[in-house]
Design a binder for these strands. Sequence first.
DNA 1: GATGAATGAGTGTTCATTCAT
DNA 2: TATGAATGAACACTCATTCAT
Lengths: 242, 242, 242, 242
Amino acid sequence: MPKETFNQLPPDKKERILKAAAGIFAERGFAGTDVAQIAARAGVAKGSLYNYFESKEDFYLHVCRDGIERSRAAVYQEILPDWDIFRQIEHIFRRGVSFVLSHPEYIRLYLNVSSAGMERFADNLTLEVEKHTADYLKGLLREGISRGTVRRDIDVNLAAFLINSLYVVFVVSLISRHFQIRMKEYLGIEGALNEHTIEGSLRAVLEMIHDVLRPMRVAGQNKMPRRIDLTQSSQGTQRKDK
Amino acid sequence: MPKETFNQLPPDKKERILKAAAGIFAERGFAGTDVAQIAARAGVAKGSLYNYFESKEDFYLHVCRDGIERSRAAVYQEILPDWDIFRQIEHIFRRGVSFVLSHPEYIRLYLNVSSAGMERFADNLTLEVEKHTADYLKGLLREGISRGTVRRDIDVNLAAFLINSLYVVFVVSLISRHFQIRMKEYLGIEGALNEHTIEGSLRAVLEMIHDVLRPMRVAGQNKMPRRIDLTQSSQGTQRKDK
Amino acid sequence: MPKETFNQLPPDKKERILKAAAGIFAERGFAGTDVAQIAARAGVAKGSLYNYFESKEDFYLHVCRDGIERSRAAVYQEILPDWDIFRQIEHIFRRGVSFVLSHPEYIRLYLNVSSAGMERFADNLTLEVEKHTADYLKGLLREGISRGTVRRDIDVNLAAFLINSLYVVFVVSLISRHFQIRMKEYLGIEGALNEHTIEGSLRAVLEMIHDVLRPMRVAGQNKMPRRIDLTQSSQGTQRKDK
Amino acid sequence: MPKETFNQLPPDKKERILKAAAGIFAERGFAGTDVAQIAARAGVAKGSLYNYFESKEDFYLHVCRDGIERSRAAVYQEILPDWDIFRQIEHIFRRGVSFVLSHPEYIRLYLNVSSAGMERFADNLTLEVEKHTADYLKGLLREGISRGTVRRDIDVNLAAFLINSLYVVFVVSLISRHFQIRMKEYLGIEGALNEHTIEGSLRAVLEMIHDVLRPMRVAGQNKMPRRIDLTQSSQGTQRKDK
DNA sequence: GATGAATGAGTGTTCATTCAT
DNA sequence: TATGAATGAACACTCATTCAT
């Protein structure tokens, strides 16, 4: 809930402030951020920020909410409703990865909210993020069941939870030092992450989801290669099921 | 790397200090913790802590390392080497859940290391935690493959990564406000988490792992119930595959 | 010395601003007052106040001067020049009490000027308030002496000082938390001040002044009751000496 | 309620801090004082003051309480219980004046508590100061009545209130710019206050109290000169009534 | 003239670290 | 070695004043 003053600002100034804040809050965390640093990076006076927001906390909340909206817009746009669940999920995962790589600050803000001392932010923000995704995934699953593309006997809630869990771990591994080190250790990656490694593990995750959701799994019918071919184009997967 | 003086302390004093520190660091995060509060809770002088550790950062590192050891001891003990991979994984998950519920502070410390501004801790700690688990899981998988209990065509690294990812999300949902709200939203839980809900989702996660690892998946052979029966004993799953 | 613009304002706007300022300055003191609060209460923009006054200090001075005038008008009006000194003093005291009860903000402003850090205001304002009263009282006393209603051997300056001192303590006890607690403690009053207690102590003060000023004090001639009868009408005193 | 730390300080350091604080709080008022200024004058670090006191407010309260004790000790010591009320009152007034002249900061603190925005301090402090004096004066008056040195028909509470009111105005006129300007205007004093003028008005006040309290007031028996002789020694008055 | 956003110096308070005892 | 007082840099937030519109 920023003050009115903030909404009356010229859009480019709002943007400058939000960018600066998202960047610094994401880099240093809420407690580690000095409001003056944001002001400096945004090119405004520290006092001005207090004309826009009630407090550092209010500011942080707004920056997070703004990040949630941006993420959502980036991830869910361009989905066509007639796509089947697998194509939609893949789209969401790919868009998510892409958005996270170009705007890592927002997912950092998301992850920060899960750490100690941030409970009051979780109380305000978590449902705003999670409810939308949860409902969306559950909708997809139910539709998939009725269309016959998803196993009948699946527990929709649990399946949605597991799919999103994989998503969360995956994108978080792209931006958190801790989760990135972890992922590299697991996958035996040395040096920086690159498109290939990301693509490879992304496809493995999607395949895992496939395995779990597909209704018929007769021996020999599993057409997705188990050993991921990292050289394959990123377009490959979604065509597989056609 | 605590100073020598710390190791020369009477064990109960060391324990008091480590408990107090783990509790407070976990509750408030590194930045949010006042060293004086730890000293007060531990019943020692603030100055004494600086006789034991070089700095707050050094202190935090040691508390985390200690937590890693405790977690490991709790989770990996009592595993018999002749158990198959599924039984071992279930054991690890159950022990993990149990340890986290009784000592939430250590997993909180783990999660905190993933947030912004904690990169220097991740650089020091993450491999220490993850390498062990990664190696262990990969070993299990390789053994499972050679024994024929795990599909041949699986990518060991990716599989280990995914299994551990599910573990991480699961235990983190037990202790982080954010992840707990999220899990409840997905699973439609109202009120506090209880044994039943935890058991139910735990079994779903284990089943998902089964689905992905099992070599043969002929229609009709899937014996695990899809719709989890929460009234079933927690011992049920591991016997299923015998 | 407000700027010209202030005087050109519509009277009701001036009034709104002066009322708001007197109220807030009186409640919170000069240092404790945020100019924005006054602007908000007056319904004008903060910047406008700086069109009307040079500075917060200038504003405060003007508000005080305005208060002085209002007080004076309220207290000294309706006095008939042929009244004797006792009747005039009683009139002044009663009017003062009455004005203070209905407009406590002005006497608060007066009292505030006596506290630490307000010396520059005292330098500007004190004489403006005090000289008038001092001259008036001294005039009354001299006239009383020449008329024979006041003792010849009295020191006019000292007598005026003492009379006004009693007045000041009295009215200040009606509006300052400190002085009110003090008065209640002395007079054994519990709960809020009310008309009776105020009337009682007012009459005691007036009587004290009588005692000191009266020329003849022969044993047995003192007709005013020592123990104040609170049920007596407030008109009683001034007729006593006729 | 300072913290224990403060009481464990070496006495000279406590004294330095209390002196610095009393001086600066008295000069600039509570709101106008920067804690850092006190620290600088006392020669300690700003942070240290927060080892001694919970907050600026707590600090201020303690400084005031300390001032109350000092004032009381200075004013009430050396009174012999067999002195009659007039001698005791004179002693108190003279000691008070003397203490105020040598330690104006304490009475400034007292006066500040009466101004706007200081109500919370008044709630804590006023009774602590006033109750003692009120009880003492009332005791004197009752004893005077029973001894026959004070008029039977006087209202003890009111008389105590008026005596103390004169005292308050008098001492406050010695230290507050506002009240000093006022006193000079009334008494026609130009330049700085000096012993003579103070002595003169002090004796007038004492005489006024005499007039009001004495049981017999036969014309011609009033031996105190009405026109105060400012050249008289300050010891004169109390001998007059013997 | 009226407005209210912009500014940045100023202030109460915290806390990691040091060090005298 | 244990203690806890001392330190001062750091930081959230305020507010008198300015000034562009």
